[in-house]
């Protein structure tokens, strides 16, 4: 290695300057060197200290390449980062599969007598059909609160006007007026596509594309992994401010031991 040969060739020079007591003052030492020979020895000493330091840095430079384990984000299902709307919009009239056939609501409900139709306005505990539907909509806990009594392929406004299933927001805002107003102004709900007002790419989701009309509360979901800050434990595990050092003393001692075994840097 080249640095080694340099240091070995320079070493005798250092010895000589110390041995010889200044025979020729300032003959070839250069303008920046003091004229009296006594300065020469320490000057060389400083120079060789610098040289040795430089060589040492060069020799150990690779050691700082060691990268500690930097952690990272715990894995999670990336399908959770979907930008799709949470629910499919209601179709009009609603289609359902019964025994392998596609049916509309009225295919069954048209066979009911008018008296039986009224009896369908049951509470959850009295229901004998559609028992899979969980109604959790506050006080609005009867089917006919939203569904039309005489035409099951429609929804019903409070005054009995039938409306299409894909225009359900007209019905929702009869009770949820504040939110309906916010939704109309764009301050409630999800907007997709573009921020440009009136852009053809912009679309605003309707009520039932996020909320299940039978239990409209947004369900609780599992959060994705928290940050891996590598610095601080969670607050519950941190000592109070100013009472103790941020890290437990044992951790500091352990890091000192590690530093010592790794050598100075």
């Amino acid at each position: 290695m080249i640095p080694d040969s340099r240091s070995s060739s320079a070493a005798p020079g250092e010895d000589r300057t110390i041995d010889v007591p200044s025979p020729e003052p300032a003959s070839s030492g250069g303008a920046n060197r003091a004229p009296d020979g006594t300065q020469r020895g320490p000057g060389f000493f400083v120079a060789f200290c610098l040289l040795a330091t430089a060589l040492w840095i060069l020799g150990t430079g690779g050691a700082s390449n060691v990268v500690p384990d930097l952690g990272g984000t715990p894995s999670f299902d990336r399908a959770q980062l979907t930008t799709a709307s949470p629910r499919t919009p209601l179709a009009h009239p609603p289609q359902l599969f019964l025994n392998g056939f596609e049916r509309s609501c009225e295919d069954c409900h048209a066979t009911f007598e008018p008296g039986e139709r009224a009896a369908a306005a049951r509470s959850e505990s009295e229901r004998v059909q559609h028992v899979d539907i969980v109604i959790s909509h506050g006080r609005n806990d009867r089917c006919l609160g939203c569904h039309h009594a005489d035409d099951r392929n429609s929804l019903s406004l409070l005054d009995g006007t039938p409306i299409r299933f894909d225009a359900a927001e007209q019905l929702c805002r009869e009770c949820h007026g504040l939110v309906g107003r916010d939704w109309e102004a764009g301050t409630h709900g999800r907007t997709h596509g573009s921020w440009r007002t009136g852009s053809p790419e912009q679309s605003r989701l309707t009520c039932t594309e996020c909320h299940d009309p039978h239990s409209p509360a947004f369900p609780r979901i599992a959060p994705l992994p928290g940050p891996n800050t590598l610095r601080l434990p969670p607050p519950s595990e941190r000592p109070p401010h100013s009472a103790e050092p941020l890290w437990p003393r044992s951790a500091i001692e352990a890091s000192r031991v590690n530093d010592a075994s790794r050598g100075p840097h």
Binding site: A10, G13, S28, L51, L58, G61
Partner: peptide, 26 residues
């Protein structure tokens, strides 16, 4: 003596430059 002195100074300077540039090796 002057040769040794100059070559030592030159070697020191070169080594210092190399040390300063050594992060590039990483």
């Amino acid at each position: 003596r002057s040769f040794l002195r100059r070559s030592a100074a030159a070697a020191t300077g070169l080594a210092a430059v190399a040390a300063a540039l050594s992060p590039l090796r990483e």
